[in-house]
Structures are given as structure tokens and as C-alpha cells.
Amino acid sequence: MTLTLHLDAAGWREHLQSVRNDVPGLVPVAKGNGYGFGLARLAAETSALGVDTLAVGTSLEVDQVRAGGWDGDIVVLTPWSRHDPVATALLGDPQVITTVSRVDDLTTILELNPQARLLAELLTSMKRHGLGRADLPALRSLAPVARFEGWTIHLPMRSPDPLAEARELATAAQAAVEAPVWLSHLPLDDYATLRSELNVEARLRMGTALWLGAPKTRRTTARVLDLHPVRRGERVGYWQRRASRDGWVVVVSGGTANGVALSAPTSAASLKQRAVALATGALDASGHALSPYTIAGRKRSFVEPPHMQSSLVFLPGAAGVAIGDEVPVELRLTTATVDQVVDE
């Protein structure tokens, strides 16, 4: 009963090394579910790349990447909070670099542990975390008494001009304290341009584009667990919906526990994208939601919402699949949990 990520390991590692060679100052990001691969594996792969720093999302992930064999510096991307005892304990770890996004938190950290290694996050147009322009003078006086590792800029995914925003913020920061600049979500060409303009070191954090940037090196499959004929009008599933026509109920591995069909608020920006989102919502409301499973050459509709570890999919007409078959399943690997990763 497995949901499997099949990986062309040699091709994937060739892609990772290519990125490593093309991006001076690369800082791989390993957070959350490890982009579908797991944090321990990403820690091991980062070690093999020969970089000196790895970024994680939260303080709790520090131990997880270390368990995977990582023994270099670790940046914690979520800003320090006095309400996070693990983050506070890590202030004394000489290999951990803590992100700070408020002046009062910086003051508190210096009182707790003046030797803590710190990155100051700047507020971008994303409006999530960060110090504003009015906070920069305070950093001018505090940075000299801290182990200040630099400035960090986390850009939005759809900035109209990411280079202009990064350049403006970096310039303002350098005017306050000259220190390295760490960046996220800056296109490679823009990163090369900004790096050439700065008189300080530049680092580029990369997660999705690094780990998931070679889609042809991977595929995900589900196992057909069971197969049942059904007649039009017959009730099926937990919720006893009536079948719309004759066909088969195909029971496949993977459900909510694996992140199958997990959705999020739409990021649609264009009219076409919004129309697709509207059409998809209409299908969901009518009980004909398209599943991510491809059976007999086409994506098929769910019989009902996925179960925890399996899903019911409707296959019209004559059966074109057998129990034990592996069928393709499209997963969002940043939110999916596969049962196994198989190197091929």
C-alpha cells in the first residue's frame, strides 16, 4: 500500500551539482517535508554538494538536519521569538545563525547571549517579517556589539521588479551597516547583477528551484489496491453517492495523510488562471472533482473526497487496470508525504 517517488538519482544529483556550480554563495534550504524527499535526505545531499551553510525553516528542524548528517552552519529562517524556547536555547549554538526581524527582539537577544550569530531581516513588499526603514538607525548602534552576520531579504514570488526591490533594500541596509546580503527568490540573472554591484558578500538561498528543478528526474506512482464494478445509480463510498454511470470503483493508495488533493488558496493572477480555478471549483461543487490519478491514459474523477490513506476513483466503462498495478499520480511535493523514495 505505497505511494512512491521514483527518482533518477544520478540525473537529480547532476542537476544539484549544476546549480551548485552556477550559483556562487548558494545556501540550500531544507524545511517542512523536505520538498517531498525528507529533511534527512536533503541534509545528506547538501553535505555532498560541499557548501558551508544550510537553511531550515524553524528551530525544531535544526536537530532533524543534523540527524541527517549535516555538520555545518545552519540558518533558521523563521525570526526569533521570545515565545520559542528551542530558538532561545539555540542562541548559544556556535553553528546556528538566528534571524531577527524586530529591534526589541535584537535587544533581548543581546541581553540573553551576546555571542549569538544574527541575521537582520528587512521588510519587503511581501509584508511578512522584517525591519522597516525607520528601524535601520537602531541597527547602526546595535550591530557593532553583536555577532552580526548580515542582512536577509526575502522577496515575494511575483515581484514586478525583484532586482530593483532587492537593490533598494540592500543599498539602504549597507548605508546603515556594511555587511553581507542574503537573498531569497531573486532570479539568477538578477542575483549575478546585484552580486557584482555590492561591495560585500552575497548569498542566495534556494529551495524549490534546487530540489525540484529537474522534473524529468522524478515521477510519483500509486498502487491499485482494489477494483469493484458498479452500476449506474448504485451507492458507493463513505458518503453513499450514486454512480453517474456504469464503470469501476478503483481503490488506489494515497490519501489525506499523504497530501493527496491538498489544496490552498489560489495564486491565480491572470484571467485565464482565474477561469480555470472557477471551473475547478464548479466541478468540486457538483461532486465531479478531478483526481490527480491517471488511469487508462486519463486523469479520473474522485468518487468522493480522499480517505486518510487511500482514495476511491471512478473509471467509466470497461476496466483498463488491474489490482497491483502502479498508476501515475500528480503530487505537490512541497506538501506531499510519500511512503517511499526509490532511487532508479
Rank of each mutant, 00 (worst) to 15 (best):
L5W: 08
D8I: 08
Q17N: 07
S18G: 13
R20S: 09
V23I: 13
V23H: 09
G25Q: 03
L26S: 04
V27E: 02
N33H: 12
G34F: 12
G34D: 10
V65D: 07
R66N: 10
R66D: 04
R66Y: 08
G68Q: 11
G69M: 04
D84G: 07
V86E: 14
T88Y: 00
G92Y: 10
Q95F: 14
T98W: 04
T98M: 13
I109R: 00
Q115N: 13
Q115I: 00
A120C: 09
L122W: 03
P137K: 10
R140H: 12
S141W: 07
S141M: 08
V145S: 13
E149M: 15
E149C: 14
P156F: 09
D161F: 05
P162W: 06
E165L: 06
E165H: 09
A166E: 06
E168F: 07
L169D: 11
T171I: 00
A176Y: 04
E178V: 12
A179S: 14
A179N: 10
V181W: 00
P187F: 06
T193I: 14
L194M: 06
L204A: 05
L204I: 04
R205E: 14
T208I: 11
L212Y: 05
P215W: 01
R223H: 02
V224L: 06
P229C: 03
G233A: 09
S244A: 15
S244L: 13
R245N: 07
D246T: 04
V252R: 00
T266K: 11
S270N: 09
L271D: 14
R274F: 06
A275E: 15
A275L: 15
G287C: 11
S291R: 06
A296Y: 00
S301T: 12
E304S: 01
E304G: 01
P306F: 03
M308F: 15
L312R: 10
L312P: 01
L315I: 06
V327L: 07
P328M: 08
L331S: 03
T335W: 04
V341H: 01
V342G: 02
V342S: 05
D343A: 13
E344W: 01
E344G: 13
